[in-house]
């Protein structure tokens, strides 16, 4: 029974990675930018919560901080990413690595290196019991928001004119250009959405994780693992990978091998890459082959 609970809990845990991983995947698929600064935007989202929540309440911060982070993301896209779209991804790797360090150090200079405190707002405190399964009310809220965002993003990409252009841009940007559509505004929008989602994750996780300058680096690695397992360019691949990673972690703890719960997700990645080098549902993107 406990083991079943662990699997269920693991699945739900996977949802937290999803908000970060989806943005990473989108930005890479469209622009070829490996955004190592993605975690930094997550951290900025969390710190913005600290600044905004006393004035606007948690609800206000939940809306405003991701928007501010998205705007910051679009600025970074406009002035930095645009110069790197046509270059080897190695260059953007260097750029975003530097950007991540600058952001982390800036947070350290402004807010100090010591972790800062932030708690779950009173109206979301408490637990829910389903049979013997205990879960936190806040996490239910978190998962509802995350699921809504994932659903919304899917609708946007699959069912809207905007999404059609983005998907075409992922496959063949030159052909999109030949058809007279400039990808520039789409790329800016995708960077804004992807980075805004990271900011949202920052707000959502601020009450249950520690807020400290290096929190971005902390979450980036598992998010990358999720993207790699899921396969680039695949929306549902990333979703499935996030759930799978959570499931494996939960199973390891449930089986009493907690010490290997992190190592296990890397083995999972290794196994999947050996069987499917493009990840679970990775599409063949000609320009990256």
């Amino acid at each position: 029974m406990l083991f079943v609970m662990q699997l269920l809990n693991g699945l739900l845990d996977g949802v937290y990675y999803l908000l970060i991983a989806l943005g990473l995947s989108l930005i890479f698929s469209l622009g070829g930018i490996i955004n190592l600064a993605h975690g930094a935007f997550y951290a900025i989202g969390a710190y913005l919560t600290l600044v905004l929540a006393p004035r606007l309440g948690f609800g206000g911060a939940l809306v405003v901080s991701p928007v501010l982070v998205a705007m910051l993301g679009m600025l970074v896209e406009r002035f930095l990413f645009t110069r790197y779209y046509r270059l080897d991804p190695l260059y953007s790797l260097l750029l975003t690595f530097g950007l991540a360090m600058v952001a982390e150090q800036a947070l350290r200079m402004i807010f100090g290196a010591a972790p800062l405190s932030y708690s779950i707002p009173d109206f979301l405190r408490g637990q829910v019991f389903i049979g013997d399964f205990i879960y936190s009310r806040y996490r239910v809220f978190l998962i509802v928001i995350a699921a809504a965002c994932v659903g919304g993003l899917w609708l946007l990409l699959e069912k809207s004119a905007f999404g059609r252009v983005v998907r075409a841009g992922v496959q063949d940007p030159d052909m999109v250009g030949a058809l007279g559509i400039s990808l520039r505004p789409y790329m800016a929008a995708v960077a804004g959405i992807g980075i805004g989602l990271a900011g949202l994750a920052g707000v959502l996780l601020a009450p249950i994780y520690t807020i400290h300058p290096a929190m971005g680096a902390e979450i980036l690695t598992p998010a990358f693992v999720v993207v790699v397992i899921g396969g680039l360019g695949s929306f549902w691949g990333v979703v499935l990978a996030a759930l799978l990673v959570g499931l494996v972690k939960g199973a390891m703890v449930g089986l009493g091998f907690s010490a290997f719960s992190t190592a296990a997700i890397y083995f999972l990645m290794l196994a999947i890459l050996l069987l499917r080098p493009r990840g679970l549902f990775g599409e063949r993107i000609t320009r990256f082959e």
């Binding site: 406990l2 609970m5 662990q6 809990n9 693991g10 739900l12 845990d13 937290y16 205990i134 936190s136 996490r139 994780y209 520690t210 902390e218 979450i219 690695t221 972690k249 939960g250 703890v253 449930g254 009493g256 907690s258 010490a259 290997f260 719960s261 992190t262 190592a263």
Partner: peptide
């Protein structure tokens, strides 16, 4: 007795074990 990887950030799985 659980050994925890140093990069673990989420403890919900452990909390279920402790509760049991």
């Amino acid at each position: 007795s659980a050994l925890v990887p140093t990069d673990a950030t989420d403890f919900s799985a452990y909390l279920l074990e402790i509760r049991a």
